[in-house]
Write a protein that binds this DNA or RNA. Structure first.
Length: 327
DNA sequence: ATCGTAACGGTTGAT
DNA sequence: ACATCAACCGTTACG
């Protein structure tokens, strides 16, 4: 159950599982400081292949999050089918799943290969159509079908994919004002970000992974990643980890920094100070040890990370001024 | 020396 | 409740 391993660089990883978000975050941030990928790889002890992948993904999606793991895209349960099922159920709340199935076939909504199984239908009834009273919101607007049982934690603000595939480099191209707050990368207040993140992650590590699903429920001619992302987030049953954070993250503490200066004053955003400090706080946080244990274990390498920085700085000295100053 | 990428062994989760 | 299986994971190695 604990498949934690050590790579060639001495870094800890869990085979088959995504790198912890804290590390993903640092990869992107170091890159934004102008540090070369190969150096990031060595310093964070993450394979350069992985660094490359994460940075590439970040450049085109704007998110540091891993893709959606597992599951399968609906083969029969298309939005259209769900809509019809909802209608049937609404018209006749006492209808049986097998009756719905028959009707789907009779009404030509599905052919016999397209046809959902009875258990599928009942699952849809259970999960996607809980309350039959109000449901029109989903069709027209962008509201959750069933109200979020828990306060919606605004981690979307930190991790969501931007509406366009436009990379959000230091220059930071502008997006519609109302979604400016969604732009994730911010060189500003790393502490704030990590602070929020720790709370966020306390809530559920797995949830982040799930809602980060980019195109999982993506049907042909579907909408933007952003929409899908938020949709998915709202549609999640998410009854698994109902761990409530003691304090709620304040959206306001996240300050949007529209631009990232070419160079920072090293003291301003110093990986050495900033990261080790914030990260250790992040790691040793009170309620940090959650259920999803295995994925968190690599965080323990945070302890060793400062050492990595030190040795690097000692070794390479003035070879790469940028790197050196950043360290 | 760097970096993109495919093979590989692994996990996940909707169907 | 259980099995599939296609999605993704990070590492490794090659070019």
């Amino acid at each position: 159950l604990d498949q934690t391993q050590v790579n060639q660089l001495g870094g800890v990883f869990v085979n088959g599982r995504p790198l912890p978000n804290a590390i993903r975050l640092r990869i992107v941030e170091l890159a934004q400081l102008g540090i070369r990928p190969c150096d990031i790889s060595r310093q964070l002890r993450v394979s350069h292949g992985c660094v490359s992948k994460i940075l590439a993904r970040y450049n085109e999606t704007g998110s540091i999050l891993p893709g959606a793991i597992g599951g399968s895209k609906p083969r029969v349960t298309t939005p259209t089918v769900v809509k019809h099922i909802r209608t049937y159920k609404q018209r006749d709340p006492g209808i049986f799943a097998w009756e719905i199935r028959d009707r789907l076939l009779a009404d030509g909504v599905c052919d016999k290969f397209n046809l959902p199984s009875v258990s599928s239908i009942s699952r849809i009834l259970r999960n996607k159509i809980g309350n039959l009273s109000q449901q029109s919101q989903y069709e027209s607007g962008k509201q959750a079908p069933h109200p979020p049982p828990q306060p919606t934690i605004p981690y979307n603000h930190l991790y969501s994919y931007p509406a366009s595939k436009v990379p959000t480099p230091p220059g930071m191209p502008t997006l519609p004002g109302h979604m400016m707050h969604r732009i994730w990368p911010s060189s500003h207040s790393v502490t704030d970000i990590l602070g929020i993140r720790s709370i966020t992650e306390q809530q559920s590590n797995a949830k982040l992974e799930e809602w980060s699903a980019i195109n999982r429920s993506n049907f042909p001619a579907s909408s933007s990643p952003l929409v899908n992302g938020t949709d998915k987030a709202h549609l999640e049953p998410e009854a698994k980890y109902t761990q409530m954070p003691n304090g709620l993250p304040t959206v306001n503490s996240y300050v949007t920094a529209p631009s990232i200066p070419p160079y920072h004053h090293p003291t301003q955003v110093s990986p050495y100070m900033g990261y080790s400090a914030t990260t250790s706080a992040y790691v040793t946080g009170p309620t940090w040890q959650l259920a999803s244990g295995s994925a968190l274990s690599p965080h323990s390498c945070d302890i060793t990370t400062p050492l990595a920085f030190k040795s690097m700085a000692a070794n390479r000295d003035s070879i790469h001024p940028v790197t050196a100053s950043a360290l």
